[in-house]
Design a protein around this nucleic acid. Sequence first.
DNA 1: TAGGCCATCTGGTCCT
DNA 2: AGGACCAGATGGCCTA
Length: 193
Amino acid sequence: MDSVFSDTDTSCDLFPHTDDEDCRGSVRSASPQPQQKKRRRGRGRSDATTQVVKKTRRLKANDRERNRMHNLNDALDALRGVLPAFPDETKLTKIETLRFAHNYIWALSETIRIADLQAGKSGEPPLLLNPALLAEAPSPGSDGCSWSSSGSSSSSSPAYCASSPGSPAAPDDYSFRQQDAVFGFRSFAPGVY
DNA sequence: TAGGCCATCTGGTCCT
DNA sequence: AGGACCAGATGGCCTA
């Protein structure tokens, strides 16, 4: 993976451009454009040290960006880890993971809501409603995922409910029963994505 | 072979 | 000024 580095230093960093846009899209071009002759003269000229500084900065920025994306992927893996596993061990893609997590949270919320309702009817104490835990729980919209509260009911479906991201196997394999409701893990809610 | 997914590079913008 | 974040571009790998 890291070996990609070597072939990127060529066109953009070593050859001065008349305008920086040339750098875009030429990252992995086979051969650098021969327009190095078209260099600017006089004002704004970039000497060797400036080029070295620019290149160093770029490499550092690339490194940071790489690490940032790695951190993002680590977080995504952690998220995959707390989601229900699939028998086929197919790794969820990024978008599947996010949508799945969203739907999963929605389903859990529904579970709590239904349990709470039923407990209220029967006079039993509400289940799973620990105020301390609820206070710590992130609000549905805090992750940038809008909760799509189209109705006044708290059971409004989540904004991301991809009906079946990827290749779902038999839905029964990934479902659980909560009272009378059956939630398929990859498609709990009516798909409105 | 086309299309999907991914990693990486890159330049721009915003923030500290 | 430098870092974080973002989106676009590109190329590699894999699968239907």
